[in-house]
Amino acid sequence: MFKIRSYSSAIGGIILFLGILYNPNIRAWAQGVGIEQIQVQTKRRVAVLDFDFASTGVTGLGLSGSVGPAKAISDLLTNRLVQNGTYIVIERSRINQILAEQNLGSSGRIELATAAQVGRLLGADVVVIGTITQFGVQESKSATNYGIFNIVNVTQRQQADVKLTARIVSTSTAEILGVAEGVGTVEHTSGGTMVGQIGSVNVTDARDKILNEAAEQAISQVVEKIAQQESVIAALPILLPDVVAIVADVTLKQVIVNKGAKDGLKPGMILSVERVVREVKDPQTGKVLTRSTQPIGRIQLTKVEANSATGQILAGQGLKIGDLAKPTQ
């Protein structure tokens, strides 16, 4: 009976050993390494900044210099890009917050380098900046008198024209990756007939309506062309945010850090978890001058919220609250 139990224990031990050896999940757990790295297909992030008016070419309503249409065009383009679904589009409120913090809200046209800087602060891969080269309505009226009966036919024609040029800018290099142009034209005709002094002429002011329709046409073309640049944008190196997060919670398989989407963290991103092993402080102020860290593990982000992120442990043991986490390739 003793020998049978001994043999059973030995066989059980061999089976357990082989299970650890050939089962990657068990082997990883035994080594302090999490499950195999997840494959997250993350869409690239796009930010749309306010469009500018060109110095010439704006016709019709005298809107040159006005910020109303510029913001309206940018908002509409943002909404259409969201509906298109090719990219992750950053909320306009977040863009406005960054512009206000950087004192760029009323500084006029944003240069390429500044646009790229704003994009990096937003955690965007590219930013879209653009110009409204035409935005207005041309009007004409005509009257035809049919002579002896004093019949007068009055016709009013209104034509709205909107032209947009958008530039897709890399946030890492400030390079223009592509240009997307859109043109919209909508016509409207109204009028009526009078016989002598009898009758009426129904002339309709449709400027706002046809301007909106023309803008929709132009924006649809711009969105389509930006979506066509997906392969170019996808080939860009992933922009790693310059951020150091602090581990806020640790469980058996997951880590939560105190930075999130507002700091540029994205699902699928890998973070190196490091522990501070030495600090050098200013003897007068007590301020930390430099610190040395030692890598102790890696996590991959699976869920990113505005101010926090949750990661799956890929490697390492003994991770704890207060450790540092830095984005890495």
Rank of each mutant, 00 (worst) to 15 (best):
F2H: 05
F2V: 15
F2W: 10
K3P: 02
S8N: 09
S8T: 11
I11G: 14
G12I: 14
G13I: 03
L21S: 12
Y22S: 13
P24Y: 05
N25M: 14
Q31W: 11
Q31C: 03
I38Y: 12
Q39E: 12
T42C: 06
A47R: 13
V48P: 05
D52Y: 05
F53Q: 14
L61I: 04
G62W: 15
P69L: 01
A70G: 14
K71Y: 13
A72N: 15
I73W: 07
L76I: 08
T78C: 00
V89T: 14
V89H: 12
Q97M: 05
L99P: 10
E101A: 07
N103C: 03
L104K: 13
G105N: 04
R109H: 03
R109K: 12
E111P: 06
L112Y: 04
T114A: 10
A116V: 05
G119W: 10
R120Y: 11
A124C: 04
V128M: 10
G130D: 01
T131I: 02
T133V: 14
T133E: 12
Q134F: 03
G136V: 01
G136C: 07
V137M: 03
V137N: 04
V152T: 12
V152H: 08
V152F: 06
N153A: 01
T155S: 15
Q156W: 02
A160I: 12
D161I: 13
D161Y: 03
D161C: 07
K163R: 11
A166F: 09
S170D: 03
I176W: 03
I176M: 09
I176R: 03
E181N: 08
V183Y: 04
V183H: 07
M194Y: 05
M194W: 04
G196C: 13
Q197T: 12
Q197V: 10
N202G: 13
D205Y: 03
D208M: 03
A214T: 04
A218K: 00
S220D: 15
Q221W: 08
V222M: 08
V223A: 09
Q228E: 05
E230N: 07
V232H: 09
A234F: 11
A235W: 02
L240Q: 01
P241S: 06
P241A: 06
V243K: 00
V243G: 00
A245L: 01
A245M: 01
Q254E: 15
I256Q: 05
V257R: 07
A261N: 06
P267E: 02
I270W: 01
L271E: 02
V276I: 15
E279M: 13
E279G: 05
K281N: 00
D282A: 10
Q284R: 15
Q284H: 12
V288F: 06
R291M: 12
R291S: 09
T293K: 04
I296F: 13
I296E: 09
G297R: 02
I299N: 00
I299A: 01
T302P: 08
T302V: 15
K303P: 06
N307A: 12
G311R: 11
Q312I: 11
A315L: 14
L319V: 13
L319D: 10
L324N: 10
